[in-house]
Each structure stands twice: as C-alpha cells, then as structure tokens.
C-alpha cells in the first residue's frame, strides 16, 4: 500500500480565495491562531435545520463562495475577558454560549493536555496527501447542558 504524505505546513492558507480580506478574528488573542481556526467542544451536537446531511461533504462546491452560507446559532461570550489585559488568564474560567435568545451554556476555555494538529486533504496536489493546517493548543469547552435564560 502506498504511503500517504503528511505535509507539515499549509501550502495555501485556509480558503486562499479570500486572502484579500482576511476577516477580523473576534476571539480572545489566546484562542487566535495564524490560520484563524479554533476548537469548540460541546456535549451533544448542533442540529442545523436543513435535512440533507450528504450536502455536508460536497467538496465540489467548496471553492465557490456563493454556495456556502451561514446559519446563525447564537453568541459566544467571554464575560471576564478584557482586550486591555490579555496576559491575565483568569477570564478563561468562564465562557457563555447562547443558543438562540433564550438558552445559555456555561463553559470555559481550557488548555489542551496535548496540542492538536488540524489535518485536511491537500487541495493543491493530485495524489492523496494530507497537510497540517494548524496546531491548536486551547479549546472552548462546554460540558453542561443549556439552561433557560429569560432576561435577554
């Protein structure tokens, strides 16, 4: 069986199509990575109301930005985080995720016990090759179920 190469560096930035306008990363600096990728762990899953799951892996349409669309789910908040004091890491203890307007999950930002490499298929090469897109060291972690909130 041929071996599959795993390239250490991303040959092209994530979605190189949008290089001109790399979006501003709103996450706390600690969670920011060169490629902009971050990890979010949930107990359970996010169900998005649009039936056909097979659409999820439709690579053919990926290069066409018109065919991607975003469904708003909620809001992420780091209530104790301050841009002016990025070195203080106490804010990591508390993170909120609102789902819709009336439910909230409480979680935290955790340093991963071991860093995680994010891999994906190399799009540049013809052969089957993988590349390390990013090495992530922190995750946003929500281990509890959502609770109702009324005072929004």
């Amino acid at each position: 069986m041929p071996s599959i190469k795993l390239r250490p560096h991303c040959s092209s930035p994530v979605k190189a199509t949008a290089t001109a306008s790399t979006p501003n990363n709103p996450l706390p600096t600690l969670l920011q990575t060169p490629s902009g990728l971050a990890l979010l762990e949930l107990q359970g899953t996010i169900n998005v109301p649009s039936g056909n799951e097979e659409d999820d892996i439709d690579y053919s349409s990926m290069d066409n930005p018109a065919s991607t669309f975003e469904t708003p789910i909620g809001k992420l908040m780091f209530p104790d985080y301050s841009v002016h004091n990025p070195d203080d890491e106490k804010w990591m203890k508390r993170a909120y995720m609102y789902i819709g307007r009336y439910q909230r999950m409480t979680g935290e930002v955790k340093k991963l016990p071991r860093p995680i490499a994010v891999l994906r298929k190399c799009q540049a090469s013809e052969d089957e090759e993988l590349e390390v897109v990013e090495i992530v060291r922190y995750k946003i972690f929500f281990k509890s179920r959502p609770e109702p909130v009324t005072n929004v």
Binding site: L27, E70, G74, K75, V132, I135
Partner: peptide, 29 residues
Amino acid sequence: SHSILFTHTRPQEGFRLLELTPELEELLT
C-alpha cells in the same frame, strides 16, 4: 461585554484532528 455571533457554515469541510506528542509538536513547529 464582548459578544461574538456564532454561526454554522454549510457545506461543512472535512478535517481530522491529530493529538500530538511533545516530540511531534516540536518537529512540526
């Protein structure tokens, strides 16, 4: 305080996550 809109993109992309050992992290970086 600072709140960030959270959305779900469709179609989703394919990624794998690989937990690194300290030696591998050093090698890859």
